[in-house]
Design a protein around this nucleic acid. Sequence first.
DNA 1: GACATAAGGTTGATAGTGTCAACTATAATT
DNA 2: AATTATAGTTGACACTATCAACCTTATGTC
Lengths: 150, 150
Amino acid sequence: MPGISLGEAVHRLMHAYKSLLREAIAKQEIELPVTQIRILKGICRSPRGTAQSIAQRMQRDKAQITRALNDLIGAGLIVRVDNPADGRSHFLKPTSSGRKIVAGLDAAEDWAVQQLTRNLQADDIALFLRVSNTMADSARQILAPDKGEP
Amino acid sequence: MPGISLGEAVHRLMHAYKSLLREAIAKQEIELPVTQIRILKGICRSPRGTAQSIAQRMQRDKAQITRALNDLIGAGLIVRVDNPADGRSHFLKPTSSGRKIVAGLDAAEDWAVQQLTRNLQADDIALFLRVSNTMADSARQILAPDKGEP
DNA sequence: GACATAAGGTTGATAGTGTCAACTATAATT
DNA sequence: AATTATAGTTGACACTATCAACCTTATGTC
């Protein structure tokens, strides 16, 4: 598809990925929206995370993170744990249900990524990731110049 | 950022691109949401397009396309033209206001893409586009197997 | 210790995105 | 002529995302 813009390519890919993921998640009989999935995975991956650190890593408004956390807590997938060093803040921990869900989500995402990449070589994918991350980092330097990688 | 998943990379890039585009569009004093922008650009680029062909190319629900078209018509940026060959369908044409807006949008998008790609070589970008389009095409073969490229 | 400023998180409000279902008018097929 | 399919529309709803204002707590300054 010659001449397709970078922006259009990103839109198409985003939509393709989300559609495949939604299908895979439905097969796992999980019913979480994609934002909650990303947050839950992030919590499993980084112990002692806070709403603030999640918002920073995902570059989302803290209000949105708070709402998603509330839904995940309501669903029994994570819990808040007081941060003894800062009374304003709390750590977020997955419950055993949460961890179980993430196992299914990992399988779903593996399938989706497998479908996306089935006509590609490993070094193409590696370059794609490098280029993609370079672009996101370039943007971050403009949009939030004083916030580095936590 | 080692170990970031493909999905997470796509999310980050999508968000980075949208944030830069929003900033650039604000500078142009345009106030269109991103979906309307994409549709308007598509209409300018392909004469005799219909709601159906736009929905297919963007892989969006026709309901969503119809609503965005209605907003664009309401804003005076496009018009509907009857399709003499099919009474159900109509072609979509930009107005002179619409074409003018697209000139500003092109400038905004050029700026956004320039910021994203400033730390990259041209062949990296070319490979990124090739890989991205290959992935989107792979997904399309699964999600809508009988719909090829119009 | 008192006061001012900043930060972590919350809630309200709102706009935009996206999908599914049901419908109408028209086209295509039998 | 009857049936099936399609283009487009509208209703309904969930999800995403941002901005603003607020409260509680932390930090910094005097």
